[in-house]
Design a protein around this nucleic acid. Structure first.
Lengths: 345, 345
DNA sequence: TTTAGCACTCACGGGGTAGGAGTGCTAACC
DNA sequence: GGTTAGCACTCCTACCCCGTGAGTGCTAAA
């Protein structure tokens, strides 16, 4: 949507948005006259603001109040009026520190990234890790836990490790487990998931009863695991939803919190970003998720190697500080991506 | 604390607590006269309630309001007045269904247990999994990911699986990795963590430069992992905090949500339960955590095999339905424990 | 086109009041 | 002595009224 808006209207709109983001209160013509740096009186501003209201960029909560930006105004602001902010040194350092820390569980890193991002932006942050992109097995290991109990450990091409327990009907010996294990590795390592031919593999196998049972169970487990690997979402800063609640009402906060717990909702949202491949800002009703239509979403994707992408984003009030939020999201995505390209091969 | 309370006062107190739990509104003498099933007038009840107030069991929010139970009254109610409830068939089935489902990642089971428990009790539920109780290595596996990149997979005596990446300064060949792997398993499997003698093991090793580097790195990783295994808390139903907010105020809801995000707080709470070894109810200021002093906590422990315990609990308003909550917590602990004793050895 | 002036609108907050729920007290009753 | 009806009293709640002030739209003049 392109607006026929002259320079003065832009400056006025900019002043309204900035002031409202700062104070959260409707902005009057007098305040704009001071803030916008225009050498005209408040009466002139009033005329202009009336026009901006007709264009759907501003609304009045009630007759004698100042103006509040609409979602469309925020969109215009983000696209056309907003300046670029370099993230402050403090913030950049905080993010660097996160990634400096000792190698740890990859899940922990994602979780901490989401918490840090939420703290830096005063929003709720979400980091999407596309674990399910793994499509073949790098390694399988069978570990005998008891006479009839074996653990299958599966390492995928993406480096995730999964385990499944198998309960057997027969006792199985240690050397059988080892032989089956070796056979299994040869049979499935490097084979894409959809090409694993369970029947063919069990057919080729030459083991006793217990061995065959174990092999079948293990194959089952491998296929089931690969099929069930879940993309994961890490969410941090849900408490911030409550902080912003006075802006948006408490029943809404509860709905949003519940949506955050049902992570598959959020998953779809973050998956869309993978297609976009660039910074995306969705304001109010631009969001397809009903729960987010009173919020703004800022997200982007980050590389995790082999041409694959993850994504991350934040949800906050539509009157968020877009400059800062966007620069934080970009910085976090960049750092996370850099870290991945270093760590993975 | 023992109270000299006759039968009639008990019935009155019981009626006040039950009514307040149900309605959330102060209970007047008239309402009690109807509910308590006593054949006395509201005037008599008024006299009795005045006595109960002197005893510190009831308070009036203001002069001309009904009475509200104090924390002490809830305590008395839970200890002396409360009936036992069998969980309804529906609820029992919901829990059974959770554990019926196909074997899956153990973390997923905990997470779902916490979500289900929160839904059944309308509270925020927490499940503590004492992963750090693992004290020895059952199995180690080295997987070569690249020329200078090896993944260590560690399986502990408790069945958790961890992985660490090692970056090497030298290229390492596949058969070297295998030999080091075999050697490593012999050296550390079954050995308690504090008895692993890294220097001794590397001393005994007969490998080339690359092999020694790999072994040292892998040992490092094993020790670091065992040391860093974290007890984990799974939290479900945080949205319920907001639902109960009107009872308790929004700034408090935010504090509580933040406490839930800082899981180590909750960890201490749940660890205490391991010592108690039985159902524990903490009401209001009985909680040592300041964040919980306006809430009630109901928790218990569950066996995870080998004499070890995990714990779980819920946090809700002090005016929660104690009968139902307690029976749900007990049922969930029992089911979770049963599941563990079946699965583990 | 801009601006000063002005009447108008309407949310907000304070103060006053009617209504009502529930109390404590007292005196009569069993 | 315990119980109860009656009653005055308290105090919260909801409501309305109204003054205040911020901010508007309109008009007429510059």
């Amino acid at each position: 949507m392109v607006f026929q808006i002259d320079e003065r209207k832009r400056k006025i709109l900019q002043a309204v948005v900035r002031s409202f983001i700062l104070t959260g209160k409707p902005v009057g013509s007098g305040a704009v006259a001071e803030l916008a740096g225009l050498k005209v009186s408040s009466a002139t501003i009033r005329n202009e603001m009336a026009t901006l209201e007709e264009l759907g960029l501003l609304i009045q909560p009630h007759t004698s109040a100042g103006r509040v930006p609409t979602d469309i105004a925020y969109r215009f602001y983000v696209d056309m009026l907003m300046g670029q902010t370099r993230p402050s040194l403090r913030d950049a350092e905080a993010i660097e520190k996160l990634f400096d820390a000792r190698t740890r569980e990859i899940e922990g890193l994602f979780q901490e990234a989401s918490v840090l991002l939420s703290r830096l932006t005063h929003t709720t942050a979400m980091v999407f890790a596309p674990f399910s992109a793994a499509d073949s097995v790098r390694h399988v290991e069978l570990v005998r836990l008891g006479d009839r109990r074996v653990m299958v450990v599966i390492i995928t091409s993406k480096g995730q490790v999964g385990r499944r327990l198998i309960a057997l009907d027969r006792d199985v010996k240690g050397d059988t487990v080892e032989r089956v294990s070796t056979f299994l590795i040869r049979s499935v390592a490097g084979v894409p998931l959809d090409s694993i031919d369970a029947a063919g593999i069990t057919g080729r196998a030459r083991f006793g009863e217990a061995g065959r049972e174990l092999l079948a169970g293990a194959l089952d487990a491998v296929c089931e695991y690969l099929g069930a690997i879940e993309d994961r979402v890490f969410i941090g800063g849900t408490a911030n939803i409550v902080r912003e609640m006075d802006v948006a009402g408490s029943e809404w906060a509860q709905v949003l919190l519940e949506a955050m717990e049902k992570q598959y909702f959020i998953l779809d949202l973050l998956k869309e970003l993978l297609r976009e491949r660039r910074l995306t800002v969705r304001i109010g009703e631009e969001n397809s998720l009903r729960e987010l239509q009173r919020c703004a979403f800022v997200g982007t994707s980050y590389p995790i190697g082999s041409g694959l992408l993850g994504s991350l984003g934040v949800v906050g009030p539509t009157c968020m500080d877009y400059e800062r939020t966007i620069s934080m999201v970009e910085l976090m995505a960049e750092s996370l991506g850099r870290r991945f390209l270093q760590t993975m091969d």
